[in-house]
Design a protein around this nucleic acid. Structure first.
Length: 1050
RNA sequence: GGGCGCGUAGCUCAGUGGGAGAGCACCUCGUUGACAUCGAGGGGGUCGCUGGUUCAAUCCCAGCCGCGCCCACCA
């Protein structure tokens, strides 16, 4: 064997062999009926994997390998996610950067083809990375959210939910991303605090009406009384004033009571055609905030939307898909008049209102933030900006100059926070309060999200959420760490309808086709008898009838069935889009029914939510679905608990009638060594592939897993961490080299036999030296140590305590096996006793094999390599049986070796302190021992001599003169160091040790004389304290004797 | 505003109702037949602060100080 493990060369070779041998296939090597299944969180096909993925997949691989070795029928289901908006963004950006035609120039079909190319490229990269990491996924089952099978599942889920009334289309206020020109869900919005401004404006009352405006303090004393012909409002978004439908005040607000019900004028647009809107009451306005009056813009603000719905206030859409002021519809004067007619009592449906464009002509087509400037300028010019008392403490004033505008439309007043600028304020200029405001940004686009009133598809999440909530509450699914529960509950308990339609091209197109609407022609006297009104197809209407079906043919069939009631012999046709269909219907003058498919696609998480069952073959009743659903553990990031985990719970329970997994483990977030999130802009990204290249996959995995603890959520990744893993590998490698040199070979054929109680298999593999049959104490001892390590590692992995599993195997390999057992074995392996030699060889081979097995899930490559190097094995280590936890320990051997270790430690410590040269061999004289300790010494003198570098080991009644004494509970170890000893220093050392032990004795005595302790503490605790006291006293006595001896000498 | 979490050795962090731990860094010694990616030894902590519960608190509870994350509609 080489001196080091060449990870770079070996890992790909080993992986290829596993793959060739079919080791990753579902169910391979299963020795028991239970299954263990993990579905991978499918990475987005946007690029390559980062360190967070490396952690996530390392943890999954550890569990899968562990369970596979335990004999479970395992499946790790791999795959990737089409990641709608993210992938579309990547491709669009690339098109732009390479100066290719844009998405719209290419057209939908060509563009989608181009995204598929991106998918292929990225998927290849991702799978390659996972393989480098050692992921033992069943690649033959690799899936993709837009594959044929998974798409069929998506369509079926949509159609079923539609038919169950759990999916519906509705015109509602949604979060609109003006960059991608699509609706997004609440979760895709990031609310960020930014510097903003609040403007105060006057809305004049109709026809110059006036009222007494009175302000009072808490005690009811009048602080302000004036006659006003306006109502003052405050806004952070002046451009939306154009769409106001009302001004609301709180019902209890006496200031405005005189004018409630009156009309006021929106002070923008051509003066003679300004709209008048009512002053209404609603509980929403806070009388203590701003002026207490709120403009209600139902189509562009979520709060206002609620008020508008309650108060039946019309909502006017002001912007187009790009967030520009609308540039369609009739000229302003015409549409504003229509809008006014609603206020005056005319009835209009929401869809009809939507066609009205009340943006003044001069603002049409402007970006919303550009329009804001114009609106402010117009109002200011007209003197309708509010002025406030100059002593107002919290306001900042513009000094004559115009604000600077940033590209997000935020006004910046360079001097506003400068105290100097407050001098000589001009109260005729408008009041602008500088304040922090929460602004919504698209999580992908990073542009300001615009609330928009649009037609979208929604999932009735509330209905689906109830059982998902219950499943966690009653423990059917367990979240780790537990405190994720509350996060999960909070969201599900207040869940909003889920907007699932996206105006994108990359994704699953919504399986709904539309046909012309139906209008009521006459009421044929419907009454008590419930006779139907008469309807007919309305080719000119924008109202549409929906047909939801999994494919076009079914949708057409549905349409035919539906329209047949209006006439026989009609032609039917499926058109490309709405425009074509409308044209066709018009052209044919009622002879043809043209239907078209909804152009929108589904939110990417809609398909991800089905992942645990769609990848297993649903809706087909496959063997895999039957066998592996519900899956076992989901390992993912807390950041997608709502996006993905909660929705998988909802859909899984709804369609499979069983939760998708019994455990969800949320892994940490990987950050750099300074605790900073890794990001391109910070340049602190560690590419997992580069790290693997430099340190090996094993080292990278160890670095990640050993730091993965349940209490902490940040995991600092660094080269230093990987070096630790690499060193550990080298240590193990060299231990194995020692075993090889000393012919400690485990012998083949164990795989099938070694599970269960283990004894038979171990006999086969390692000769007759089964655990428990050893005669040599060190061998008995290492068997017991190994057994304890098995229990620790197994329990840690069962509990998903990855850091504990790592430290358990690390300590066992390094501290126990290498530091002590290898050293203990040397005399036996080089000694004269052939039986002892053979036993030690077999035991070491076995013990080392157990190390390899226990470490394999964490460091699969090096352990597999050693497994193959150390013996001719038929089976891969990855399919070897996990050791049982009933490996026998021998209490006497444990006690004896523990004593040997303490003796050696003590001697080494003294030698170093006394500066005894490492090469110098010294004597040791044992005193104050019981007979059985003398026998122990006899049995182990060789070991002690060797490891403590002693020339001679003796026993005596009395310690010789001029000794350094090490006090143990069972005996005193004396080192005659007459020549080097400094009596003063030694005396001081002993006294220090005596003081320390004396302190402990005092504490223990105090505790043991406390009646409360004796009465209330558990008996075993009391007993333990007594034992400790005895030990301490025994040590103290020996120390005391040594001190006296020294004193006599001096 | 609501929720969650953190504060333990120089650094990064485990951990536990009953003897304070690891890795790294640091200091001393060492190339002894597995390993210098190593071995041996060592220094270093009133476990954030203040109270409470308990026979016993670093651990449980309350408050405070400092830090982080998530959710949220105050115009």
């Amino acid at each position: 064997m080489d001196k080091n493990f060449d990870a770079k060369a070996a890992e790909p070779r080993i992986y290829a062999k596993w793959e060739e041998d079919g080791c990753f296939k579902a169910g391979v090597g299963a020795r028991r009926p239970e299954t263990f299944c993990i579905v991978i969180p499918p990475p987005n096909v946007t690029g390559s994997l980062h360190m967070g993925h490396a952690l996530n997949n390392t943890l999954q691989d550890i569990l899968i390998r562990f369970k596979r070795m335990q004999g479970f029928d395992t499946l790790w289901q791999p795959g990737t996610d089409h990641a709608g908006i993210a992938t579309q963004m990547v491709v669009e950006r690339e098109l732009m950067e390479t100066q290719q035609p844009s998405r719209r120039e290419m057209g939908r079909e060509k563009f989608v083809d181009r995204v598929w190319e991106q998918k292929e490229k990225s998927e290849g990269t991702i799978l390659g990375q996972l393989k480098h990491l050692g992921a033992s996924c069943d690649w033959s089952r690799n899936e993709f959210t837009m594959s044929e099978g998974l798409s069929a599942a998506v369509l079926k889920v949509f159609v079923d939910l539609y038919n169950q009334g759990l999916i519906y289309k509705s015109k509602r206020l949604v979060n609109w991303d003006p960059k991608f020109e699509t609706a997004i869900s609440d979760l895709e919005v990031e609310n960020t605090e930014v510097d903003g401004h609040m403007w105060h404006f006057k809305y004049p009352l109709q026809d110059g009406a006036t009222y007494e405006y009175v302000e009072k303090d808490e005690d009811g004393n009048v602080t302000l009384r004036e006659t006003r012909d306006y109502i003052s409002i405050a806004t952070t978004r002046p451009e939306t004033m154009l769409g106001d439908g009302a001004v609301a005040v709180h019902p209890s607000d006496e200031r405005y009571a005189p004018i409630v019900g009156k009309l006021c004028e929106i002070p923008v647009g051509p003066k003679e055609h300004r709209r008048l809107i009512p002053i209404i009451t609603d509980d929403y306005p806070d009388p203590d905030f701003g002026s207490g009056a709120v403009k209600i813009t139902g189509a562009h603000d979520f709060n206002d939307y609620a008020v508008a719905q309650r108060g039946n206030i019309p909502m006017y859409r002001l912007m187009d898909t790009k967030g520009h002021m609308r540039d369609d519809g009739a000229p302003y004067v015409e549409d504003a008049a229509k809008a006014q007619s609603i206020i005056d009592g005319a009835e209009m449906t929401v869809n009809e209102i939507d066609l009205i464009n009340i943006v003044p002509d001069d603002l049409r087509g402007l970006d919303r933030f550009e329009a804001r400037k114009h609106v402010i300028d117009q109002i200011t010019a007209e003197g309708l900006a509010v002025t406030v008392p100059a002593d107002h403490p919290d306001v900042a004033w513009m000094k004559g100059q115009a604000p600077e505008w940033d590209n997000l439309g935020r006004a910046r007043f360079p001097e506003i926070d400068d105290d100097e600028s407050r001098v000589g304020l001009n109260p005729t200029l408008p009041l602008v309060e500088s304040k922090k405001i929460m602004q919504p940004f698209g999580d992908r686009s990073k542009v300001v999200i615009e609330p928009m009133l649009t037609d979208q598809w929604f999932v009735d999440a509330k209905t689906l959420a109830a059982p998902a909530l219950k499943a966690v509450q009653d423990g059917t699914t367990k979240l780790i760490p537990e405190n994720a529960d509350k996060t999960y509950y909070n969201w599900l308990e207040d869940i909003q309808p889920w907007c699932i339609s996206r105006q994108l091209w990359w994704g699953h197109q919504i399986p709904v086709w539309y046909g012309p609407g139906v209008k009521k022609v006459a009421d044929s006297g419907a009454g008590i008898m419930g006779k139907d009104p008469i309807h007919e197809v309305d080719y000119a209407s924008d109202k549409l009838v929906s047909f939801c079906a999994a494919n076009e043919a079914d949708a057409l069939a549905e349409a035919m069935t539906y329209y047949r009631q209006f006439g026989e012999g009609l032609d039917y046709e499926v058109c490309e889009d709405a425009r074509e269909a409308f044209k066709r219907n018009d052209d044919e003058d009622g002879e043809c029914i043209a239907i078209f498919r909804d152009p929108d696609v589904l939110d990417t998480w809609f398909s991800s939510a089905l992942w645990p069952f769609s990848t297993l073959g649903w809706p087909d009743k496959t063997l895999e679905l039957d066998r592996y659903y519900k899956t076992d553990v989901l390992i993912t990031g807390l950041d997608i608990i709502f996006f993905w985990v909660a929705r998988m719970m909802m859909q899984g329970i709804h369609f499979m009638e069983e939760v998708p997994f019994h455990t969800v483990y949320f892994n940490s977030i990987v950050v750099d060594k300074n605790g900073k999130k890794m990001s391109k802009s910070l340049g602190n990204i560690i590419d997992p592939l580069i790290m693997i290249d430099e340190f090996g996959a094993d080292a990278t995995r160890y670095a990640l897993a050993s730091q993965e603890a349940q209490n902490r959520r940040l995991l600092r990744m660094s080269n230093q961490a990987a070096e630790g893993g690499q060193r550990f590998g080298t240590k193990l490698w060299n231990a194995a080299r020692f075993a090889e040199i000393n012919e400690c070979y485990g012998d083949s054929a164990s795989a099938q036999m070694a599970h269960g109680s283990g004894t038979d298999g171990i006999r086969m593999a390692y000769g007759w030296h089964t655990p428990g049959s050893q005669r040599q104490t060190v061998n008995k001892w290492i068997v017991g140590e190994t057994g304890r390590a098995v229990v620790r590692v197994t329990n840690a992995l069962e509990e998903h305590k990855f850091n504990e599993a790592c430290s358990a195997i690390y300590d066992h390999v390094w501290k126990v096996f290498c530091d002590w057992y290898v050293e203990f074995s040397k005399p036996l392996l080089t000694g004269e006793d052939p039986d002892a030699k053979a036993e030690t060889r077999a035991t070491m081979a076995w013990a080392l094999d157990q190390c390899l097995i226990l470490l394999h899930p964490i460091m699969p490559f090096i352990t597999e390599e050693l497994w193959q190097n150390l013996a001719s094995r038929k089976n891969a280590l990855m399919l070897e049986a996990w050791p049982s936890d009933d490996i026998p320990a021998d209490a006497a051997a444990d006690a004896e070796m523990d004593w040997v270790i303490r003796v050696i430690d003590g001697i080494r410590s003294v030698r170093a302190e006394m500066n005894v040269p490492a090469a110098a061999k010294i004597e040791m004289v044992l005193t104050g021992y019981a007979p059985e300790i003398g026998e122990r010494l006899l049995r182990n003198s060789q070991l002690i001599q060797r490891l403590a570098r002693l020339s001679e080991v003796a026993v005596a009644e009395e310690a010789p003169e001029g000794c350094v004494t090490i006090a143990l509970t069972e005996c005193a170890v004396n080192l005659p160091l007459k020549d080097v000893i400094d009596i003063g220093a030694e005396s001081a050392r002993l006294k220090k040790a005596f003081e320390k032990v004396g302190k402990e004795i005092m504490g223990l005595e105090k505790k043991l004389s406390n009646q409360g302790f004796l009465a209330k503490a558990p008996e075993e605790v009391v007993e333990e304290q007594r034992d400790r006291l005895n030990s301490a006293q025994s040590e103290a006595a020996k120390l005391n004797a040594a001190v006296e001896r020294l004193a006599a000498m001096g």
